[in-house]
Design a protein around this nucleic acid. Sequence first.
DNA 1: TCTTTACACTTGTAATTTGCAAGTAAATAT
DNA 2: ATATTTACTTGCAAATTACAAGTGTAAAGA
Lengths: 138, 138
Amino acid sequence: MKALKQRSTCPISTSLDVLGDKWTLLILRDMVFAGKSTYGQFLQSAEKMATNVLADRLAVLESQGILTKAVASDKKSKFTYRLTEKGVETVPIIIELILWGTKHGPAVVDPGLLEELQLGKDAAVEKYQRLAREKALA
Amino acid sequence: MKALKQRSTCPISTSLDVLGDKWTLLILRDMVFAGKSTYGQFLQSAEKMATNVLADRLAVLESQGILTKAVASDKKSKFTYRLTEKGVETVPIIIELILWGTKHGPAVVDPGLLEELQLGKDAAVEKYQRLAREKALA
DNA sequence: TCTTTACACTTGTAATTTGCAAGTAAATAT
DNA sequence: ATATTTACTTGCAAATTACAAGTGTAAAGA
């Protein structure tokens, strides 16, 4: 049981108590935009997160009800992580990070996604939330 | 000169390289929603950030062009921090954190702001960006 | 003028967190 | 039976954070 320390009652602060680090939102990104769902898949990302940090973050995300952990349907030695509705609702945050990083950072962006976002942010949010919800049922 | 390490070219990752910690966005929150602009004011927030961490984050934010530092108009021993346009454009990210924290966290929220957000997110984003831009000119 | 206060940091040090390499353990595959 | 896959755990050095105290400069007060 991972007890999180709450620094204040400000909603921004409480959000950052959970999401405010360099790794957590990358795990959620991998689930939403890359369809990943296992420990091994998360480790393969370009940012190369350490195994112990990944294990720790997955435990926090689970204890906070952002994702669930279950034995995979194909293998008993494998676990599947799925987004809860609380997790799906981080999509707008992630989308805003994409837009800001694209505009102001040294990022290289997938042109397809960028066009989609520029065409309509709300539509893109809904699309990726829908896909994530469908994936969560599988 | 604070050199940031870039972990990948993903826009989410590059955004988190700068904003992904527990303190940076709280400084921006204080500038946008509380009109704060000095080191002393930032220290007085409910979350009680350490002085060395504040100094470090302000230096990073300045080096990344998210805010500027200038001698205050009233006192030569005082500095005023102002948001750049890059800084103003973090407002949508902060607003999404407010909405998520309000809905899913243990946060206690200002009812006025919440009503404003529920009435129309885009309008709220524009309002606080406008206020921040005006403040930056003062 | 001398002292005190206000403000913005810097420094030192202990505790915590991270990054890296290696090891463990259960379930499959060969 | 042995090897491999998958998901971690462990140990340790390095980096970061938290906490307390100190420094330096400008302004204000006696």
